[in-house]
Simulated assay, not measured.
Amino acid sequence: GYGTAHCSPQDVDVPRIGDELAAARAMRSVARQLMREADSDLEAVGAGPGGAPGPGYGWPYTAP
């Protein structure tokens, strides 16, 4: 993942906060990549969201 943080000229320069923001943004990038992979894998086995109401993941519900 990749993340950056930039300090505005009027902000107090606190490098730790910038580091935390950059790390959080990188983790969010990794999470998005993992979700795209999981979505692709789910669709490949017929368990993707498919536009049906509900949580959108898992095997399709069939009534007993």
Rank of each mutant, 00 (worst) to 15 (best):
G1W: 13
Y2T: 12
G3E: 11
G3L: 01
T4Q: 06
T4N: 05
A5L: 03
A5I: 03
H6M: 04
H6P: 00
C7Q: 09
C7L: 01
C7E: 01
C7I: 08
S8I: 00
S8W: 15
P9C: 05
P9S: 13
D11K: 05
D11G: 04
D13Y: 15
D13E: 14
V14F: 15
V14E: 11
P15Y: 03
R16I: 01
R16D: 07
R16P: 01
R16C: 00
R16E: 08
I17C: 05
I17L: 15
I17D: 13
I17S: 09
G18S: 06
G18A: 08
D19I: 10
D19W: 04
D19M: 05
E20N: 06
E20A: 12
A23P: 00
A23I: 03
A23M: 08
A24Y: 15
R25S: 11
R25D: 05
A26Y: 12
M27V: 12
M27R: 11
M27L: 12
R28Q: 14
R28W: 13
R28I: 00
R28L: 15
S29D: 15
V30S: 13
V30Y: 15
V30D: 12
V30F: 14
V30H: 13
A31P: 01
A31N: 13
R32V: 02
Q33K: 09
L34D: 13
L34Q: 10
M35K: 10
R36F: 06
R36T: 04
E37I: 00
E37G: 08
E37N: 04
E37Q: 10
E37F: 02
E37Y: 03
D39G: 11
D39C: 07
D41Q: 08
D41E: 14
D41G: 01
L42P: 10
L42Q: 14
E43I: 01
A44H: 14
V45P: 00
V45C: 07
G46E: 09
A47G: 05
G48M: 09
G48C: 07
P49N: 13
P49A: 13
P49S: 10
P49K: 09
G50L: 08
G50V: 04
G50W: 08
A52N: 02
A52K: 05
A52R: 05
P53I: 02
P53K: 09
P53W: 06
P53T: 02
G54I: 02
G54H: 03
P55K: 04
Y57A: 05
G58M: 01
W59T: 00
P60A: 10
Y61R: 07
T62Q: 03
T62W: 07
T62E: 12
T62R: 14
P64S: 15
P64Y: 05
P64V: 13
P64N: 04
P64D: 02
